[in-house]
Design a protein around this nucleic acid. Sequence first.
DNA 1: TATGAATGAGTCTTCATTCAT
DNA 2: CATGAATGAAGACTCATTCAT
Lengths: 201, 201, 201, 201
Amino acid sequence: MSPKSKEQFKVMRQQSMAAIKEAALELFAERGYAHTSIARIAKEAGISKGLMYNYFDGKEGLLRAIVEDAIEEGQQLMDEGLHTSEKPEEQLTNLLNLTFKTVKDNLHYWKLITSLAFQQDVFEGIQDIIGPQTMENVMAIIPILEKLGYEDPEKEAMLLGASLDGIMIAYMSLGDAYPIDDMKEYLINQIIQKAPAKNNK
Amino acid sequence: MSPKSKEQFKVMRQQSMAAIKEAALELFAERGYAHTSIARIAKEAGISKGLMYNYFDGKEGLLRAIVEDAIEEGQQLMDEGLHTSEKPEEQLTNLLNLTFKTVKDNLHYWKLITSLAFQQDVFEGIQDIIGPQTMENVMAIIPILEKLGYEDPEKEAMLLGASLDGIMIAYMSLGDAYPIDDMKEYLINQIIQKAPAKNNK
Amino acid sequence: MSPKSKEQFKVMRQQSMAAIKEAALELFAERGYAHTSIARIAKEAGISKGLMYNYFDGKEGLLRAIVEDAIEEGQQLMDEGLHTSEKPEEQLTNLLNLTFKTVKDNLHYWKLITSLAFQQDVFEGIQDIIGPQTMENVMAIIPILEKLGYEDPEKEAMLLGASLDGIMIAYMSLGDAYPIDDMKEYLINQIIQKAPAKNNK
Amino acid sequence: MSPKSKEQFKVMRQQSMAAIKEAALELFAERGYAHTSIARIAKEAGISKGLMYNYFDGKEGLLRAIVEDAIEEGQQLMDEGLHTSEKPEEQLTNLLNLTFKTVKDNLHYWKLITSLAFQQDVFEGIQDIIGPQTMENVMAIIPILEKLGYEDPEKEAMLLGASLDGIMIAYMSLGDAYPIDDMKEYLINQIIQKAPAKNNK
DNA sequence: TATGAATGAGTCTTCATTCAT
DNA sequence: CATGAATGAAGACTCATTCAT
């Protein structure tokens, strides 16, 4: 009733929601959305099944909330990466380094996102969130590639986006058996070296 | 005196199996394995639920049969592509053209295969079939890239494999909104052009 | 069309029916009626599922046919046992020896009959066959026990019947771990020895 | 603020479990395990199909829980029967009276146990519970028979066990048409009378 | 706010039986 | 007479969701 207890409730609410999302994220990513039960999530999060329905709009709503979090976080990091330097080589290097770091640090998020990306059995709302975001990321890279002298920076950006997706998928599938750091270095080098250099007056 | 001949039975069986696999392939690819019910497959294939169990070892067995078909077909095409020319540029061009054509012609297969490739909720046996096959395809490209003068053909092959995966995924997600043919041309050109040319004499 | 082929058909018919009953008996006895499928019986008997329905009235009809065979055979042996001697001790000994031998030689039959005897989930017709037969066997022993001097031969016959049932069940459950031959000797001795001796002159 | 208390939940659980076990016991005993469906049990118990799975590990788990209850109860009564007197005749009389009373009072339990005892289509775990228990009961009787002067108390105990089994089966099959009380009296008398009397100085 | 008992629709799977040939 | 493909009803089991407290 008192303002203080309202504040306390809010904190508890946040904690519970975070716990639920964290548990669900890990389970969705590792075992798949369909094979993860609400009961299991609740158990892992240390709360009751019923409580989940106080905070999220069912299982689907929970998934949506997680995906939205992931997108938001991804966007923030992408923005940071773009504003660290003026030199396109460094911008690109920073951006890719950041991308790889982010994926490695938040493997659960990316496993989930990627697996949802082309699962048609997932609720439509989710696809509508993921698709545009990918587009945006590609768009952000175009100016950098332009400055590097690429004649067709749109295509190169799309190719880079596809390569990144492919590398991430391999990494997610194979785990540490995949030489992701070597691939990162190789990818960055290739993009910078094959760029028409003279443009860089 | 006149029971159905063995030949007749064989034909019936093969027709039913084909109908079931065809219906299941489309549904698995478009709606996902988990969200496709046996009842739906049977309805789509025009047979009863029970008949599926005469031919396949449950839902999982059906999936496995479909995947094995896909792998087998993919392998055949890959082999063909490698033996059409001696020039590495042509070999690569042929191989990639063939790959893109195959994927476009058998979109259901590839959607399914790709979606399974990093779905954790799928049975282990399936993963064990898909993984090695991908490896083999990458290995087959290494010698071609070597002849093209690449210093690190293994890495370049892995990068190419990843790029292909990424392009295919985008195409599968976005459909004809994705300029897959342009991407193919661009990819082929890039790989050939950025190859250390002098090696070729 | 010719008489000869009619005869041949009859022989084939008998062979097929016998093969089916034999296979079904073993499977029913060892795995239970409910857990034995028609498909399995047909496979074991080396015939097709459909053929079974030419000879028997479904799964239940098959069971009934087998039980009737068993009852008939049991009755024959019981009759033989009664007419081998005039001395009640020998009659009893013969009868029990024969009973034990029959059960051991036709374990499948007796396992099946006994398991059916107090399974309420079995079709009513079956119970109606088994119950009276048991009664008859008990009745047949009464005169022997009377001659042995028992004051209450009906009760003693019922007790003997119950003991036999119990021993058989233990043997069927435990197999050769149960000392059935020792039990037989012991049972026969007990019945003869505890009989009021003076009658025996 | 006021969720249901743990105590309340516990009561609810126990009520539901008891209702389920009670309904299942009766149905299993009267219609057989295989022919009793979960749906029927739920209907009879007045709960939903799903609830059963909250408390028991499937149909088999339910059966096991019931059997374990029966075994436990049986063991308790057996222990009581042994400690009421020092005279072997009275001990035996008490034990058998108690056994018959228990069976009559808990007919469902004993029908179920007995029918399971030699049903091959029942899960192995169940057999492993029933077998040893039967053995124990037989062993407990040996010392009493020894005191009564039997030369071979092991065999006599096994015979007694078998007779009891046989009587119970007849009673279970025929119901009140079987003179179970007369049989009890007769059995007790026979065992005591045929015992080598002089031992009893 | 929080709990977890209860629900019931939906799923996979089995199998006795039918039937065209 | 003989086959085995095909059927479909029935059963066990799962799990997202609701609700009384």
